[in-house]
Design a binder for these strands. Structure first.
Length: 188
DNA sequence: CACTAGATTTTCT
DNA sequence: GAAAATCTAGTGG
């Protein structure tokens, strides 16, 4: 189980999004296998937070790859992204769903449900289950002692599906959502 | 089941 | 001041 390095993340967003499938996301005592992601870009992507230039919120997307980008959505839910591409070229991958592997009891408690399939099958749910919030923005996840890490995996995902992104109002036609078709833990 | 409405607050125009 | 990369509970078949 090797830690993914900076050169994994510094590529194009859609490549990183696709290759993150099957990898293991770890935060503290909790963790799971990534089964659903979405790619976001910069000025050319109307759905991206970075579409209209740098701002206080999105500045991490403009920085180096391999950092966390955590922000509050709809005033209630934190969403977890990982930055991609080079410094000055904004990009990120949204982690939409994982399959629970580690600390399942703890995640059940945080989410208040016994149903394993309902623990982390959505971007707002997985941050709740793993206790991720604004404090975890802009963490360098390529460091060994980082609180949040992504580990390589020998289990290569089989059936990778593509579709338009979810929950946005522009740019849905771009097919930048990637997921493992056989997984029981995809978002709704 | 399927569908609708409401929660809640940061961020940028 | 409006909109936002969502989720849950509640309603009605």
């Amino acid at each position: 189980m090797n830690l993914l390095k900076g050169n994994f993340y510094s590529r194009d967003s859609n490549v990183v999004a696709k290759e993150l499938l099957g990898k293991i996301l770890v935060k503290g005592e909790t963790g799971g296998r990534i089964v659903e992601t979405e790619a976001y870009y910069g000025p050319d992507d109307p759905a991206s937070h970075a579409s209209s230039g740098r701002s206080q919120r999105n500045e991490v997307m403009f920085g180096p790859a391999g950092r966390t980008y955590v922000y509050l959505c709809y005033g209630m839910y934190y969403l977890l992204n990982i930055t991609t591409r080079k410094e000055g070229e904004p990009g990120a991958v949204l982690i939409r769903a994982i399959e629970p592997r580690k600390g399942i009891e703890e995640m059940k408690e945080r989410r208040g449900t016994k149903d394993a399939k309902n623990l982390t099958n959505g971007p707002g749910k997985l941050t709740m289950a793993m206790d991720i919030d604004k404090e975890h923005n802009n963490i360098d996840i390529t460091k060994k002692d980082s609180l949040i890490k992504v580990l390589d995996s020998k289990e290569e995902p089989e059936n990778i599906g593509e579709s338009g992104r979810i929950g946005i109002s522009e740019g849905e036609d771009m097919d930048l959502r990637f997921f493992i078709e056989s997984s029981d833990y995809l978002s709704n």
